[in-house]
Design a protein around this nucleic acid. Structure first.
Lengths: 252, 252
DNA sequence: CGCCCGCTTGACCCATGTCAACGTCGGTGG
DNA sequence: CCACCGACGTTGACATGGGTCAAGCGGGCG
């Protein structure tokens, strides 16, 4: 079931067969289905379990009193929503679906069991959490310093590379099931301006975007115009040096 | 020594005398001094220890190739820089001082000892980390959705409340040792525009800012114009419900 | 005493927002 | 099977928040 999560964590460290089984076990107890544009948990609610996205896209967002809305981050398949929020009493933001979503609910206890018994999983979950925070920092830079064109380009690079990490790209293309309004909510731009920026990216051949399919013919070129540096995604098998079994452990 | 940290964690949970001693012990091994505008650690470096700010202000920042700079967050006295970064191989951003800074270097091992032996400290550090991430999310909203006036107002509210949490306010005022350029780097505005916004806040009586001293005569009023909601700081003694000693434990 | 850094102000400009209309496509019901 | 509808995308005209450039100012420090 949680192939995407396992594949993602595999970018950081090597997981044993038993690690995988433990992950499968912990994430198959309770599965829930949501339609598009539904709240999974709302601001003010008490967080009760950790959610693992199995399929579909979701996002964190925050709505201001006057209706302005900011998408704070995207959740893709394989993403965990806050392994440790239950330390806090209530949510300060909402998590909602973008597409229909299938997710696994994991109890705090199951997370504790998992990490108690499996040091590699523990470290891998740490890595996944630290990367998530690094992404949040990068969004701060994106919104604070980059132009509209750079913001959209940067976001597209990030999403493509994250999707690739969970096996959801085909060659140089992937599905991008978000509307232009949602891209605007994520980048702090109006939908009209998002549209114009997309036209510009298309016209310069940096992207092909038809319907929900995004193709990036030359990822490096797009990275260059968006000032995108992937270092914040920490993708270079960093965990191997911490892995007690060493990098020589054969891949299953 | 680490009064500010202890005071801050006390907003979340009750720490025993012994917890405090352990904190004092772990944070007094190695103290370092930095001048203003120096890097504590630079992008690309390998993180080696956790830094606790004892005195002075610092910030995370990221510099784009063309010179644009974004301040990603502020570190105030009592703030820890990333209790767990050492899982990652290299820094994807820099941490630099704003004023002269005195900080304690804590080794990863010391953190592990601390958390192994002291469950309340563990939970309190979790809380402090989760709040830090929540602040990062709020900055995303700030930069993405708020106007210049709201951004600056929001930042001032946040800083004031955080300083109050570590005992660094006097009544309705505090020290604000940052230049207008730095405020601009944090809010994604030009220094010129920051200046005009500050004038406007002054003119409307919402702030008094002379030299490095900031006074907020009516914090609620400022919160209102900045659309500031303090829920993301999770300040309401949330930890008491988790504290084995219960809320009835007498305050030292 | 003089210099430099940070603050302030004015004039002008541009990226992006707003408003409004129109196009297009997929789904639904008659 | 067609007509309609609503959501999303596209386009143009115009407005504006905030950026840029440039000059002046004031005070703390060498």
């Amino acid at each position: 079931m949680p192939q995407h999560l396992i594949r993602k964590l595999g970018q950081f460290t090597h997981l044993s067969e038993e690690d995988r089984r433990a992950l499968e076990d912990a994430t198959s107890r309770k599965v829930r289905i949501f339609g598009a544009h539904q709240d999974i948990i709302s601001e003010g609610d008490a967080p009760e379990h950790v959610n693992l996205i199995l399929e579909g896209w979701a996002c964190r967002y925050k709505q201001l009193e006057d209706g302005r809305r900011q998408i704070i981050s995207f959740f893709l398949p394989g993403d965990l929503c806050d392994p440790h929020v239950f330390v806090l009493r209530e949510m300060d933001h909402s998590i909602g679906t973008i597409t229909p979503v299938r997710l696994a609910e994991i109890s705090p206890d199951a997370i504790l069991d998992l990490t108690d018994e499996h040091p590699r999983i523990t470290r891998a979950l740490w890595w996944e959490m630290l990367v998530k925070v690094a992404i949040q920092r990068e969004w701060t830079v994106n919104l604070g310093q980059r132009t509209g064109l750079e913001r959209i380009g940067h976001l597209l690079c990030e999403l493509f590379i994250r999707l690739r990490g969970v096996g959801l790209t085909e060659g140089d293309s992937c599905l991008l099931p978000v509307t232009q309004v949602e891209l605007g909510d994520a980048t702090g731009l109006s939908n009209v301006h998002v549209n114009r920026v997309l036209q510009e990216l298309r016209a310069s051949g940096l992207i092909v975007l038809r319907g929900k399919r995004l193709t990036i013919p030359d990822l490096e070129a797009l990275q260059r115009v968006a000032l995108f540096n992937a270092n914040y995604l920490h993708l270079d098998r960093e965990g191997w040096h911490l892995d007690a079994n060493g990098p020589d452990q054969p891949q299953a």
